[in-house]
């Protein structure tokens, strides 16, 4: 009974937040609503029984997407976008029927799939069966790295592509993007950073390590690390540069290139492509991916080709 009430409230919150994000008056509020929507979505994943997704949604779906949206909003405002807060909605008489129709369709499909009397997924059963052989405790990390590694490898490539494409956009054109706001040193921020940054790194490493046997993994850890980087950028401890230094470039590419090189290794001794040669390789790839994810997300946030430490920091 209480559980039902809880789920009902979560669903209600999700729906009303979604409506607010899309149709609220001000865009800025829309972003806040979208972030809170993501946080509520994380609660929903927790209730559905998928803590890994809860974590990913909170960190990546809500946290970093929200941060990226806010910084994009800030750039729009800096470029003199003054009609965005009250952008009028397009008038379309078809919008409501189409929306209701597609919602109904999805509902019917979803219920049909939920109620269909399928056997349990064979792929999932194989995962649970073979996972202990590899000494991994987290089935999802197992699927991502051991059983379906190519998906993960290409997913890192997607992130890299997004970064490269976004960089290409910023690299052409005028120099207004390089104009930066000044960051006055405030005592509170400094104190906060001194506590938060080491903690974030600690949490990221913990999540990474935890990923092999319980909830966590490279993506969640990378997102936390990226959050620390975002903090450093925001507080002006790290400032943006137009071209990346060797360390940053290495960071961006570590995940993809480590995965490819380790994935190609088995071909040398006659095993299948992307067969991971042992636990050490899982740790190595996960660490490299974490670094790459963090680096890519920070650069996307800072709209920067590279980063350098500010002298004050």
């Amino acid at each position: 009974m209480m559980a039902l009430l809880l789920d009902g409230l979560i669903v209600l919150a999700l729906v009303s937040l979604a409506v607010q994000a899309i149709s609220g008056r001000s865009l800025f509020r829309g972003i806040i609503h979208f972030v809170v929507f993501g946080l509520t979505m994380a609660l929903a994943w927790a209730r559905i029984g998928a803590p890994d997704l809860a974590m990913a949604e909170a960190a990546i779906g809500a946290g970093l997407t929200g941060a990226l949206m806010m910084v994009a909003y800030r750039r729009l405002v800096a470029q003199g976008d003054n009609h965005s807060p009250r952008a009028p909605a397009q008038k379309s008489r078809l919008a409501i029927p189409i929306a209701v129709g597609s919602g109904l369709l999805v509902g019917v499909i979803g219920l049909g799939a939920l109620l269909a009397d399928n056997p349990p997924g064979e792929a999932g059963l194989i995962v649970l069966e073979t996972l202990p052989e590899y000494g991994l405790g987290n089935a999802i990390t197992g699927v991502l790295l051991l059983f379906r590694g190519l998906d993960t490898l290409l997913e890192i490539a997607v992130l890299l592509t997004a970064l490269l494409a976004a960089r290409a956009l910023a690299g052409t054109g005028d120099s207004s993007a390089t104009a930066r706001t000044q960051h006055p040193e405030t005592p509170l921020v400094g104190a906060l950073l001194a506590v938060v940054i080491p903690l974030t790194i600690l949490v990221a490493v913990h999540l990474l390590r935890a990923g092999t046997h319980e909830t966590g993994g490279a993506f969640q850890a990378g997102a936390v690390l990226a959050a620390a980087g975002v903090l450093l950028v925001l507080s002006g401890r790290v400032s943006r540069t137009d071209t990346a230094g060797p360390l940053v470039r290495l960071g961006i590419l570590a995940g993809l290139s480590a995965f490819i090189l380790i994935g190609l290794m088995p071909l040398l001794y006659g095993e299948a492509l992307l067969t991971l040669p042992g636990m050490w390789s899982i740790y190595l790839i996960e660490t490299a991916m974490m670094v790459s994810i963090a680096a890519a997300l920070i650069l996307l946030f800072a709209d920067a080709g590279g980063l350098k430490r500010d002298r004050r920091g």
Binding site: A18, I22, V100
Partner: peptide
Amino acid sequence: LYVFAAALLFGIGVYGLIVAR
């Protein structure tokens, strides 16, 4: 309940995609 939520959210998303400028 969550399938129901998904249906509503999808509908809202479609509406937003059409209507939002």
